[in-house]
Design a protein around this nucleic acid. Structure first.
Length: 337
DNA sequence: TCTGGGGTCCTCTTTCTC
DNA sequence: TCTGGAGAAAGAGGACCC
């Protein structure tokens, strides 16, 4: 979906259409938080996802800042996903505003299917999306990004050399800021240059798993299937303090609250868990985690809170704390009738 | 001075168990 | 009983994705 959160807000508040809209945090650009989505008008000012709200505000004082309203975006997301599933039941969810659809078993021409999807999404939600059609997920994802917004891009294996190889390595799924910087230090800027490296060299620099992945991905090769069913492996809650703190009471109280929230969450979704992890981010952004695995699966708030405090006690709180979080791992679905 | 929250997966090291 | 090793599980950290 194109600038999804911002587009949903512009749809339900038409007076925002054509204006720079920034969605993030609790909608207050003087507080801590980052941009989740910026409307295309806001992007003209250099505002983009993951940017601190305060920075976004400096770039554009006139932008309209709104809090993230997940309930509403989920509601619209469901409408979109239902349309996709009607077109083809083989759908992989990729977060709230993206999905892969396997249309290889569908009779119609792929381009016709894409146009139908666009029309139905626009009819039922008033929103636009960008679609990529390709022989695999890796290429379809790149294709969907090539003509935004409201784009439709079709790629075949024949296009890899001419259209994929000139692209910056950062366009490859799995290549983030660290890998990009590392590759650039090796003199590798484009996907084509990445494809010129031998598999031995890649494995030497990036390890067996990621090295092999980069070798295939740079050639447009991806055999990964669509994941149509998914079970969560962990669930968590974390919060950043408005001001870094060294007050143990504040930290402990917040951790207890987060534990309650995460347990409520598990009760609602019907999961028990076995491993409790506490995470602390200090003022200097150093992150420390401590974990404790329990004897059995639990959903008891008492047990989870107790384990969390044992973990917290193992963390040296000498520096000011920026964030505290709790995660419950090794989830197991509770049998319910 | 600024840098969210909710996830997954990978790697390396330590600890446990046989 | 001591020692060593293999393999699994746990723990910690880090990169990446939306």
């Amino acid at each position: 979906m194109d600038a999804f959160f911002a587009a949903v807000e512009q749809k339900r508040h038409p007076e925002l259409i054509g204006k720079p809209v920034v969605i993030g945090g609790d909608g207050d650009p003087t507080k801590r938080g980052v941009v989740s989505t910026a409307s295309y008008e806001a992007r003209k000012f250099g505002i983009h996802s993951a940017m601190p709200l305060r920075t976004a505000y400096k770039l554009c004082h006139d932008a309209i800042f709104l809090p993230v309203d997940y309930r509403e975006y989920s509601r619209v997301s469901k409408i979109v996903k239902n349309i996709l599933k009607e077109i083809s039941p083989i759908m992989e969810d990729v977060g709230i505003d993206e999905a892969f659809l396997d249309i290889s078993q569908t009779e119609k021409l792929s381009e016709e299917i894409a146009k139908e999807i666009k029309k139905r999404i626009n009819d039922e939600t008033g929103l636009t999306c960008s679609i990529g059609i390709a022989p695999n997920k890796l290429l379809a994802k790149i294709a969907s990004d090539m003509q935004k917004p409201d784009g439709l891009t079709i790629l075949t294996e024949k296009d890899i050399v001419s259209l994929i190889w000139p692209l910056d390595v950062r366009k490859l799924w799995g290549v983030g800021p660290k890998t990009e910087a590392y590759l650039k230090s090796m003199g590798i800027e484009t996907i084509g240059e990445l494809a010129s490296l031998t598999i031995d060299k890649l494995v030497e620099h990036f390890g067996k798993s990621f090295g092999n992945y980069l070798y295939s991905a740079s050639r447009g090769i991806d055999e990964s299937p669509l994941i149509t069913h998914w079970e969560p492996k962990s669930t968590s809650r974390e919060t950043t303090f408005q001001k870094d703190t060294d007050n143990w009471q504040t930290i402990a109280k917040t951790l207890a609250e987060l534990a309650k929230e995460v347990v409520d969450d598990m009760r609602q979704t019907g999961y028990t868990g076995k491993t409790v992890t506490v995470k602390v981010k200090f003022h200097d952004f150093k992150i420390v985690t401590r974990a404790k695995t329990l004897d059995g699966y639990t959903i008891s708030l008492d047990e989870i809170r107790k384990a969390a405090f044992e973990c917290l006690a193992r963390i040296e709180l000498k520096k000011k704390v920026r964030l505290i979080g709790i995660r419950i791992g090794k989830l197991q679905k509770t049998i319910m009738e």
